[in-house]
Simulated scan of single mutants.
Amino acid sequence: MNLYIDPLNGLIVLFGCAIGFLVYRRPVSSANTQPQRDLMGGAATALATILIFAFLLGRGDGQNPESGDDAPRPAPSSSSSPVPGGMIP
């Protein structure tokens, strides 16, 4: 089975992973302890970066916005006749 990934979507994922890796590599140090790496912070940053860029670039749902599927449709018309005197039964 072949899975086609749009090049822009691939770049978004790679950029998010790079940002997450930078956050992971940044040492977190406190008094009298050795520097440690922040795995969960890096993963959360990567996911947040991917999500934000996907929505900013309009790639959130994976559909082509220019496909014409979202063409405006005519509104349904009302088939009831008006009541004389403006009273609603």
Rank of each mutant, 00 (worst) to 15 (best):
L39D: 03
A43S: 08
G86S: 04
T49W: 01
F53T: 10
S78I: 15
R37L: 03
M1R: 14
Y24K: 08
P74E: 12
G41R: 06
A48M: 13
P35M: 00
M87L: 08
R26F: 04
L39E: 04
N2T: 15
R73H: 13
R37Q: 11
S30A: 11
Q34G: 02
L22W: 06
L47S: 13
F21V: 05
P27A: 02
V83N: 08
A46R: 04
S81Q: 11
T33W: 05
V23H: 03
L11T: 03
I88G: 10
P65I: 09
P76A: 15
G86I: 06
R59M: 05
R26L: 07
R73C: 08
G62P: 00
F21E: 09
L57D: 03
P84L: 09
S81A: 12
L51Q: 04
G42W: 01
T33R: 10
D69P: 01
P65R: 10
G58Q: 08
P89H: 05
P82F: 11
Q36H: 03
D69G: 10
L8T: 09
S77M: 11
F55W: 11
N64W: 07
G20W: 02
R26N: 01
S29G: 07
G58C: 09
D70N: 15
G60D: 08
S79V: 12
N9W: 02
L14Q: 14
M1H: 14
R59Q: 09
I19C: 03
D38L: 00
S79R: 12
G86Y: 04
N2V: 15
I52G: 12
F15G: 01
R26V: 01
A54L: 12
G85T: 10
L51R: 06
V13M: 05
G85L: 11
S80T: 10
G16L: 01
S77L: 14
A31R: 15
G16Y: 00
Q36G: 04
I52M: 14
